[in-house]
Design a protein around this nucleic acid. Structure first.
Lengths: 336, 336
DNA sequence: TTGTAAGCGTTATCAA
DNA sequence: TTGATAACGCTTACAA
């Protein structure tokens, strides 16, 4: 008897098949004692309801699909946070990985094959236009985490990039810094608001703008390292560097340290994310934290809300980053 | 027309439904031009085959289930490696996360609900006995990555822990070290072989054994930090410390550095895994690398082999770790 | 709580 | 390449 079915469990117990169905779905219509007996029998026989058959028959889908990049530094943390939230709302989670050999489109198409009630796409590599097209083709609510502008096709959950970099600049200003440079990740979708935050905060403090433009810069250590090298070619260093994310910040720190520049005594460095790297004691990076739990929760909430209200206009949920002060920042050097 | 079906695509094109089926499954029986037309129509209509219906009807399952911990440092890399391998063998991958709120058993049960042809369980928290029980209940081949002894219930893919720590000891001996301590992760399933490797290699070199037993030690930075503190209480430090994994090694390095002990000039430190942390330039840890690509490939191979030969006895695939020398190790201090 | 029946979207198997 | 038909395991609905 390979792979028992619901009928097998029912027969084993001498009850009807739909009684077993009721118990497996936690629906009203069975006494507590029967529930126990049915669960017991199912476990003994190694029976698991066939998810495919279930989703085929069910009137409404009970799964939320999640596309994510396993190799990424922060996305898996958001995935973790999505699970309990989805469960609380009565949905199961279906994962689909976006890897070096598997595009966001492929990942999303698979989720569509599972007939998910909604899709959560974490940090895709797609442009806004491509994402809109994808979302429209999906015909189910799509929530994008990490980037995106208000639009008619999908919901957005992202942190307020402006606020994050502003927080970092303000922190540095309070430490007496006046010459603060910014590493701009020109090629990333979420880079623009972060740059804006830097510009706003420096303007408010009456500081000069110093944006380091790296050719095709993205959120990598390499981009940060390149920015660091550009800085070292200058006659005078700034007293602080605000990076677009933690990895860039790490790249900057390494290049500066290798050149004998002491962080934070000579130059303070800040990041964005509060990734695992930032928390390592040898990095110990002051950063703008994006809470993965808040992001995951907001994404599930947005998805469920749009499943229940399909005609409501897509929303943008903004998560406020918080400032995490560590030892990569310190008072501005008194005489520069 | 929400959610088009195969019939819709066929009608749209004026062909039969099973022609569409043949094309979507890449089966022989359709001309190249028809294939193109069908694919084109499917994409236009936003049609994706219903995976549930497919798995319900198909004689043989075409999916491999993977249980993993998203928050872990190395498991997501193995997941990435599994994708291309599974595709090559004609299987799709179904992921199931093991999180703080979701046990290995729950993750595996879900995979069973998808009627996977085989299960790959990465680094479970289960004991060998619990894992055997789970595997038997599954009734499909189970491959465990990371730990496990030869047994009749499941296949094992793991690195040769003995070889990894032996490599580290031999590397240190070649650098002139004679007093090499070992941080033992007593509570972990894979800890025993790694300890053995240390014992064997030190015996071969005629060195004294120095195993640091930390109460309930596991593979965390905290365990390494505790071991480091124990070392600092001694009258004399060893010249090298071999840790059970990279995180422990990092903990050791941090505690030693904070106490003014210079790594590697006074004490060399080695890890195990070659995780992202080990590669960071501020850690730059000499370590025994477990190649995630090899692990993923071996797991898929084992799974596919057992799907095709169900009665073959479960195997143990051993991956040889390789030595990655970085700057956390150096020549033994001449006079100690 | 049971029995009966239909049907979800596919694959599998035929004969044409 | 088509058409017809059955079947996979489940949920849904309804009457008993």
């Amino acid at each position: 008897m390979p792979e028992p079915t619901m009928a097998d469990v029912a027969a084993h117990l001498g009850v009807s098949r739909q009684l077993v169905s009721i118990v497996m779905r936690d629906m009203p219509g069975a006494s507590e004692t029967t529930r126990q007996r049915v669960r017991q029998a199912a476990s003994e026989l190694g029976y698991q309801p066939h998810i495919g058959a279930r989703s085929l028959r069910q009137t409404r889908s009970t799964q939320i699909g999640v596309s994510f990049a396993p190799a990424h530094t922060t996305e898996p943390d958001i995935v973790e946070a999505i699970y309990p939230e989805a469960t609380r709302s009565g949905y199961r989670v279906v994962l689909s990985a976006q890897t070096a050999t598997r595009s966001t489109t492929q990942a999303v198409d698979e989720l569509l094959g599972y007939r998910c009630a909604a899709l959560i796409v974490i940090g895709s590599d797609l442009t806004d236009a491509a994402m809109r097209k994808l979302a429209r083709r999906a015909k189910v609510p799509v929530v994008v985490i990490g980037a995106g502008v208000p639009n008619a096709a999908y919901d957005v959950v992202r942190s307020v990039g402006e606020a994050g970099t502003s927080l970092m600049v303000e922190h540095l200003v309070s430490l007496g810094h006046r010459r603060i440079a910014y590493v701009h990740a020109g090629s990333m979708a979420s880079a623009e608001p972060r740059l804006q935050g830097y510009l706003t905060a420096t303007a408010a403090a009456g500081l000069e703008v110093d944006v380091i433009q790296v050719q095709g810069a993205d959120y990598t250590e390499e981009a940060g390292a390149t920015a660091g090298r550009l800085l070292l070619q200058r006659a005078a260093l700034p007293t602080a560097v605000v990076a677009g994310n933690d990895q860039q910040a790490f790249g900057v720190m390494v290049v500066l340290s290798r050149a004998g520049v002491i962080v934070p005594d000579q130059v303070s460095v800040t990041g964005f994310d509060d990734s695992r790297t930032a928390r390592l004691s040898c990095v110990d990076l002051t950063t703008a934290r994006q809470d993965p739990v808040l992001m995951g929760r907001a994404a599930v909430e947005a998805a469920v809300h749009r499943i229940d209200n399909p005609d409501v206009a897509p929303s943008v949920a903004l998560i406020q980053p918080t400032s995490v002060v560590r030892s990569s920042t310190g008072p501005a050097p008194s005489a520069s």
